[in-house]
Design a protein around this nucleic acid. Structure first.
Lengths: 111, 111
DNA sequence: TAGGAATATTCTTTTATAAGCATATTCCTA
DNA sequence: TAGGAATATGCTTATAAAAGAATATTCCTA
């Protein structure tokens, strides 16, 4: 479900965690330290991100190393990509209309 | 704030409204009808989407016609795009390492 | 200008979730 | 194997937001 992904990302603290993980994988304590939150909160937020498929865990000794999970972001990218066509379509129609010398009727453009 | 955009989209009903508006602009009542929700809810959800910059309104007589706002989606697309580089970078490193005949150390790959 | 159509707002109730704190769990090492 | 490091979980409280119902607002038209 895309909405779960979006929901997980919409929480500011989790958003920052994801931004942090862009740099490199981090352990739970490292996340907590960098974001200046307590360890349990970091753990919980990472769990939400994990449940949403946004991050993966790798266990090294006692440490749980979290890293971004490409698939989830590709899925999001695909969805966002499905909008780009809309603006292009409208520009296409605008172009056609201009070539045909039509008056532009914005009630049809959706802009 | 990107988190506001994400939050607005993360609500299932609003997500469907956005999907509906992909097709063409819709009035409040039309949205309510298609999504089988009551008019006030549609109005409220559209307000949230509007506050987040995801939709624009055009008033035609008493009707408020809502349509998607390209800028917001482009912003999202830019952000999502900033992740694509990461996977590529990793593939690049993998490629380099292979050419150099190195042993792969996954603790550095973040995958 | 009165009436109705279309939309927005207010208020209440309910539900979801984030934070805080304590504690449990897991696993390495001396 | 006892102790400590790293992480996870449970419980409570506080806050945010969604739904429902009633009502207010805006604006066109006869």
């Amino acid at each position: 479900m895309l909405t779960e992904t979006l929901k997980a990302l919409s929480e500011p603290t989790r958003f920052y965690i994801v931004e942090l993980l862009k740099e490199r994988p981090y352990s739970v304590n490292e996340c907590a330290e960098y974001l200046e939150i307590r360890q349990p909160q970091a753990s919980k937020h990472l769990r939400v991100l994990s449940d949403a498929g946004l991050v993966s865990v790798k266990t090294v000794a006692q440490k749980h190393i979290y890293s971004l999970n490409p698939e989830a972001f590709c899925q999001l990218e695909d969805w966002i990509g499905s909008f780009g066509m809309l603006w292009e379509k409208r520009l296409d129609r605008l172009g056609e209309d201009l070539r045909e010398g039509k008056e532009r009727d914005d009630s049809r453009s959706g802009i």
